[in-house]
Design a protein around this nucleic acid. Structure first.
Lengths: 120, 120, 120, 120
DNA sequence: GTGGTCTAGACCACA
DNA sequence: GTGGTCTAGACCACA
């Protein structure tokens, strides 16, 4: 369910957090479903528990999970999260498109690219 | 011409390189035009020369400039660069859009966002 | 009568203890009235009995309840408790106000805030 | 300038962060002034660098400092920070006052307490 | 068993 | 020199 790529330049804790974000938003991990424990996941991925801990702390800070001490970490209700995530994505696309346009790519060209992926 | 923002989380060398990329692609710096010398730019920006050196090395590696020993650094011909840059951007947008769609954003929604920025 | 919020970052035993403190101070639980047994409450709240036990131990330590072996836990007389609780609150407010003032908030500003909540 | 209290129940990283927040808001550390390096402070306080790192990361996340890689950490401009901090304090006071009132303390009593500290 | 904090120490990117 | 990430392993609070 979780994979990490050591060759990826992004830090491991970020990859782990990103992956869980995705799984929660997709509904693969349901609301209030328990995530693997810090220790178990650390063993499974052959990663230090501190690194997992950091990924979970980040997810909690961003509202994707909540922590019950002594019990574990659980996926938060994801209704508002989806809207929050959309906003994040909008900003990312906006940033890229702005630089794209500034070096001469037209809006139509950008849109065409999006349409092409649809057909894949 | 070049500005750096210390509060930006990106490393300084990357900001400098990015800025030159932009200027070259826009044609503000013409093909074969000389870039400021490492030392001068370092003084102007109150930055360590090593940092400028690294930015230039990066630009050369990516084909945006070429170095003539004893003369300086010069902007490469920018025709092929533009296409290269577009390809980069396409990949970035593609990556983002794919995750966007996978969590339920429709293609039309993405396109609408792009159109809205146009009107700004 | 007792509710716990798993998403609250405070430990469960503290939430339980805090809630009973409140009920005793408000007089909802009268002096010498029996509190639910550890086991019953644990079942009702679907919580580990150890956790309830700890909440009760904390309440006893602070003088809010007293234990009669073989009989159960009972609310202490609440006259002195109220004064004790007020003292606690005074200290808390004092601590916060001091730092508030030291970074430039005026006393009048603090008081105004309190008055505003009244009207809610 | 920075002191930590091992007997304090709050984690060390939080104490350190809180202390810097205070110094920045008071203007003791001016805008864009450099904070001690992670390593130096760690040695001075006989604390592990990781713990200082965490305190600084927290401060950056909350906007109190900004990081320049390879250079150090610097105090952010504190105009907006003050307002942000006031809001934090308001919430804290509000929370305490609400429970105070709910157990029978009057608003006037709370205000009287504040006035008394003034005369200290 | 579960998460939270911390130490000790390594290695890397950046300036 | 400076911050950022990570491992290894300890100890504590909580359930």
């Amino acid at each position: 369910m979780i994979f990490i790529d050591l060759k990826d330049s992004r830090p491991i804790y970020e990859q782990v957090a990103e992956r869980f974000k995705f799984l929660i938003l997709k509904g693969v991990i349901a609301s209030d479903e328990k995530l693997p424990s810090v220790r178990n996941l650390a063993v499974d991925l052959s990663i230090n528990p501190n690194t997992i801990q950091r990924a979970y702390a980040e997810l909690e800070r961003q509202g994707y999970i909540y922590t019950v001490k002594g019990k574990g970490n659980f996926a938060a209700g994801n209704d508002q999260l989806i809207e929050q995530y959309r906003e994040e994505i909008r900003k990312q696309i906006k940033g890229i498109c702005e630089t794209a346009v500034s070096v001469g790519m037209t809006e139509e060209e950008l849109i065409r690219n999006i349409r092409e992926w649809r057909s894949l």
